[in-house]
């Protein structure tokens, strides 16, 4: 699924834009626990999370995740935005909760990231 399609489906706004909007996102992972993200995440996946701590961007950096969606319109603090710019990670936010965001994307055909 293309990144711009994800943005449309979620009614998401772009906080930090580092990617080509036509970039293909392979799959998605919904999680708040960062070790689990690093354990199961594959490259080119989308991270859907309710956690807006700096360590989310660090986790993405280490795991090679290129795009993060914050649910419930959680706006990350300035230091998180700066770190994402520096590390080339796209940040989005959606008014949907994690359930609805996952539901809409799954229904539109985006698969789950491998593993659990």
């Amino acid at each position: 699924m293309k990144l711009h399609e994800i943005i449309e489906i979620l009614g998401a706004s772009i906080i930090v834009n580092t990617l080509d909007m036509d970039m293909q996102i392979q799959n998605a992972c919904s999680a708040d626990m960062m070790s689990t993200v690093m354990y199961y995440h594959t490259a080119n996946s989308l991270l859907i999370t309710g956690l807006s701590q700096p360590s989310v961007v660090r986790t993405a950096e280490m795991a090679g995740i290129k795009a993060i969606v914050f649910v419930l319109d959680k706006a990350p603090a300035d230091n998180i935005v700066e770190m994402a710019k520096e590390k080339n990670i796209t940040l989005l936010k959606t008014p949907n909760c994690m359930y609805t965001a996952s539901g809409k994307l799954f229904q539109s055909g985006l698969p789950s990231c491998l593993g659990k």
Binding site: A28, M98, Y99, T100, L105, F106, S112, C113
Partner: peptide, 17 residues
């Protein structure tokens, strides 16, 4: 469930729709 959070939510969302 053996499913991931994303998939469990996805399947349930479709059922409830």
């Amino acid at each position: 469930t053996p499913l991931s959070a994303f998939e469990a939510a996805g399947k349930m969302y479709q059922l409830l729709k």
